[in-house]
Amino acid sequence: MVFAFALSAALCLGFGFVLQQNAAQRAPMSDFLSFRLLLDLVRMPRWLAGLGLMVAGMALGAVALGGGEISLVEPLLATNLLFAMALSRWQTKQPLGLTGWGGLWLLAGGVTAFIVAGRPQGGHSVTDPLRHWLIVGVMIGGALVLAAVSKRLRMSAEAATLAVAAGLLYGVQDALTRVSGERWTHGGLAALIVSWQPYAVLALGVTGLVLVQSAFETAPLRMSLPALTAAQPLAGILCGVGFLGDRLRTSPGALAWQAAGLAAIVVGIVLIGRHPAMPRGLAEERVRDLQPR
């Protein structure tokens, strides 16, 4: 059931990202990195449909995180790019070709290799608050630094940098979602309300949404979605092993296969994300339309 919920979440997220980017690229640039961007986007039916799918994906992902280790669920959620590619390919009628098929098999094979070699198992959450806050602080602080630095970069690099920042926040959000689920299970609604994790989940979700939509607004989906899809599982796995008590096999062979699996996931994500079937940005479409035929 964990696999089913995680893959269903990936499907909703992949479709939702494509619909959101289709709408976000038409938002005014004056709203860049501003919460006003969300106010403009809610007027677009396509973006609302994408947001609805994204929320459904997060809810399904939360169910998967409640039943499985984050080190297991995060690689499965990374397959959202396969579903984004499927929808984009249907929209553009673009064949997969060698690059598309290569990226698909690398991503799927990397997820399989990491899960089989690592055999993620749950354990007791780390009770050391210093370790907990250190990992969360480094992730959130890194995301904020990347968001600040992105303003000085060229547009394509800016989109990728914002997407990495959002991926870090979403990885922490997934970890805190699991903690919130544990509090709900063991203490009920009262224990959940008085804890800080659910409020942090909401704040991280809204902030990550602004970063993602700003990335979608500035450049084609192929510039941002691969970075987002690669950063989120890596951040989630680090949180899972760092303070949630997830255990992975640590024999030399297992570690080698896990490293190879993560590398294959990242390379596959980059190949798929840069495939011609992925939606172009509005500026790119205008340049193409102005070129002589």
Rank of each mutant, 00 (worst) to 15 (best):
S214Q: 12
R288Y: 03
F243N: 09
S224Q: 10
L221P: 07
L262D: 15
E284N: 09
L244Q: 09
A227V: 00
G242C: 05
P226M: 02
M278Y: 08
S214G: 13
A219I: 03
I237F: 01
A283S: 09
G268S: 07
V206Y: 14
D289M: 15
G245F: 02
G242Y: 08
G253I: 00
L228P: 07
V201R: 08
P220L: 15
L238E: 15
L202C: 07
A235D: 11
R286D: 14
A215C: 14
S224F: 02
V210H: 02
L262T: 03
R249W: 03
T218D: 05
E217N: 14
S251T: 08
L290T: 13
Q258R: 00
P252I: 02
A215R: 09
M223A: 15
L244I: 08
S224N: 04
S224V: 04
A264N: 11
V210M: 12
G261M: 15
S224I: 03
A283M: 13
R222P: 14
L290R: 09
F216I: 14
A263D: 08
A260L: 07
T207L: 05
I272E: 00
A264F: 07
G240Q: 05
I265S: 08
L204K: 11
L255K: 00
L271P: 02
L262S: 07
L248G: 00
A219G: 15
L228K: 12
A231D: 13
R280L: 14
T250Y: 05
G253K: 00
G240S: 04
L202R: 06
A283E: 12
L255Y: 01
L248N: 01
A256L: 01
L202E: 09
L244S: 06
A231E: 09
P226I: 01
T218H: 05
L202W: 06
V270W: 09
V270P: 14
R222D: 08
L262E: 07
G240Y: 01
G253V: 00
C239L: 02
A260S: 13
